[in-house]
Design a protein around this nucleic acid. Sequence first.
DNA 1: ATGAAAGCGCTAACAC
DNA 2: GTGTTAGCGCTTTCAT
Lengths: 342, 342
Amino acid sequence: MVVKGRTGQPTLEEVAALAGVGRGTVSRVINNSPRVKDSTRALVEQAISQLGYVPNRAARALAGSRTDAVALVIPENEKKFFAEPYFSDIVHGVADGLADTDMQLLLTFLRTESERRRFLQYAGARRVDGVLLVSVHGSDPLPDLLAEIGLPTVLGGRRSGDEPVAYVDADNAGGARSAVGHLTASGRRAVATVTGPLDMYVAQSRLRGYEEAVRAVSGSAPDPSWIANGDFTEEGGRRATAELLARHPDLDAVFAASDVMAAGALHTLRAAGRRIPEDVAVVGFDDSPIARHTDPRLTSVRQPVEEMGRTMARVLLTALGEPESARQHVVLPTELVRRASG
Amino acid sequence: MVVKGRTGQPTLEEVAALAGVGRGTVSRVINNSPRVKDSTRALVEQAISQLGYVPNRAARALAGSRTDAVALVIPENEKKFFAEPYFSDIVHGVADGLADTDMQLLLTFLRTESERRRFLQYAGARRVDGVLLVSVHGSDPLPDLLAEIGLPTVLGGRRSGDEPVAYVDADNAGGARSAVGHLTASGRRAVATVTGPLDMYVAQSRLRGYEEAVRAVSGSAPDPSWIANGDFTEEGGRRATAELLARHPDLDAVFAASDVMAAGALHTLRAAGRRIPEDVAVVGFDDSPIARHTDPRLTSVRQPVEEMGRTMARVLLTALGEPESARQHVVLPTELVRRASG
DNA sequence: ATGAAAGCGCTAACAC
DNA sequence: GTGTTAGCGCTTTCAT
């Protein structure tokens, strides 16, 4: 006949019976309540391992009104943003940060408007304990909506300088400053930049870092003609670099606000007959293998992506532990990885 | 006054009350049971949307003994294997394949032996309905253990030619044949190969494809001296290519069993003064951006990775629907992407 | 410190 | 077809 319900798994009740205690006591033990006598605890733990007992998550969630699950949400408006190992690193980091918890990691892609709605319902129904949100675009309302719902949320990156929601970001402006500083320190003065899409704070920050570094050596803000907009794609990097080259045939350095764009810049510069790094130096941002293979000597700013993921997980866990804790804002340092060509 | 534990979420009971029906009927409606009069169904659906009702997953799981969740498991013995977009594509594909289900996607990395044990416990406790397992290494016992437990499992790739567990793989041997065939068709006869780690079936298959293609033109199996082992890393590709070059200075083509290794091969060949493709042609496998940026003209075999993920999800869903269905084995075709340099 | 008991929200058997 | 009811396995008062 059809085997139903029972999975054959031992239940808390059976553990209690074997240990000769009540169910409440077993529950206390597996939840690390301090109000249990050591000897009793030992008894129960013995029974647990003897039976190979594993608490039933669903029952726990139902009774305790929590889920022990967090969602990692990835809005897919800009898939290109995730072509690189960035995505993979974030996921690894988050998983690592959750590793010694028994939190489950749910992965959710939000491609369409209807999927966004569905997710909000889902979140509103509290089917996760918290949310990690990456690749937040300029004016994405999702973080605010989650905040209204009262669901602990941590962003990877931020939407603006005074992001109200908890976030973990990299020091993009600082990274850009050090990249450009690296160029000027070696005597390059005609430094142009290829920016990311300026509706993203990450792109604004990197541009700002560039401007600050230029001002630091020239005493004034760079002329806008030294700035060309890309979109974080290689093709965008090529196009923007071509513009820059047309406007300033004498440029001797380019700071690309992403490594993929740096790869594009390198291609365009080479195609135009410029030698790297004799004629033009290039510095990128992100330290991706793609760019390194385009030119192994490419100097780049490295963001600690995996650690960002780990930190996001940690921040969320903290927020889950102390519901009324202030929103945490973490900015991790970047690092300039020098190779020959910068 | 007595309001306790309530999360504020409407329950099935409230829906039933509002619709003026019993709870069982509401349950039937949300589970698409055919045994409901259309008019009643409409009534219930009206109440559901009026209340914004979302079924409680935990309660459902507890009562129905299923979880509506599948785990995507990634054994991390060989992290290098996932440096490329492969991982990202698989995940996207799986998510896509699950998109119009309300299955949740759990992500699980297995780094240590203790994590493996924990996962087996977890799986044994039936906290997921099924498992997707990628990057299965040569003699990994995990798939068999899951099969014993009776948990529907689908592999991405396989462990051997007669893999008993359901799997979705790419036609690696066929891809390798077409790659090498492409080289020989253009007159190259001195074709060497850089293999992957031969304890992986994927590497064996690609080597077999190479051997078959060589035999097809030369009439006999290639001498082992034309074969050098890599490990799917760039450095491995460099080393193996250097060996080949030392053994056969006259080689005029290389088939690399992965694109990252192809990148390594290109670097080594260039460093040795060989011109690509005048002196030596290179063909890779996987069609990764890394390799394309090393040489934009690199011809590669493309595996439909995202579709593999999608298919894995589909196969698993089928297995969940028909528990006694035969193990499905799917092999997806690969495609040669010709560019100038092959 | 521990046992007893009341749910958590749902599914599935069973009646009608 | 539809209502009723008994659990699913756990957490959490409330007594003791």
